[in-house]
């Protein structure tokens, strides 16, 4: 089946005018399937993280939304353990006027503005409401652990002091929390 013009156009534009902090590259053997990266927004606990996602345009795209999933572990109330994303524009608020580009920007915005009132992971969402400081701390620990593989050793080392050392449940967690000044 020939690739629809709409998809070719979108792909060409993604290549020619990439969105800052976002990349989307189609697979050579399946032009409806994209490898995506999204950088965590600066003012979020995901700052310095670069997240891998995968995106697929189903047969009836753009009448139905793209399918998108995180492949990097992330601590976020609207993203579950399998990387599935709860976002209105990926579901009921999808419109064919939206594009791959706008969807990826919406996901990046979701990283900057978690929405615990419409959660996908109820445990993470509860933490976000009950103890937001601790939730943000946990999110940073995950960013450090899973989201920074793209950096070299030296670059990572320079950023070490920006990140708390321990996750909840780790030994000495409470002591670390005090020395971070997060209590």
């Amino acid at each position: 089946m020939a690739l629809p013009k709409r998809i070719i156009k979108e792909t060409e534009r993604l290549m020619a005018e990439p969105v800052p902090g976002i990349s989307a590259v189609p697979h050579g053997d399946n032009l409806r399937y994209f490898d995506v990266t999204i950088d965590g927004p600066e003012s979020s606990p995901y700052n310095h993280g670069r997240y891998k996602l995968e995106l697929f345009l189903p047969d009836d795209y753009p009448m139905t939304p793209p399918k998108v999933r995180f492949m990097t572990k992330i601590y976020h109330p609207n993203i579950d353990k399998l990387g599935r994303i709860c976002l209105d524009v990926l579901k009921s608020n999808w419109s064919p006027a939206l594009q791959i580009r706008t969807i990826l920007l919406s996901i990046q915005a979701l990283l900057g503005a978690p929405n615990p009132d419409d959660p996908l992971d109820p445990n993470v969402a509860k933490k976000w409401v009950d103890d937001p400081d601790d939730a943000i701390r946990e999110a940073k620990v995950w960013t450090w652990k899973f989201g920074m593989d793209y950096l070299g050793f030296e670059e990572r080392k320079k950023l070490r002091s920006d990140f708390p050392t321990m996750a909840k449940g780790d030994e000495n967690y409470h002591r670390a929390k005090i020395s971070d000044g997060t209590t």
């Binding site: 089946m1 697979h27 399946n30 409806r32 399937y33 995968e54 697929f56 345009l57 189903p58 047969d59 399918k67 999933r69 492949m71 399998l82 599935r84």
Partner: peptide
């Protein structure tokens, strides 16, 4: 023939 659904999205559908 339709679009070829990649492994992970196919497994999510089955899940």
């Amino acid at each position: 023939m339709g679009a070829k659904v990649p492994r992970n999205f196919r497994l999510l559908e089955e899940l």
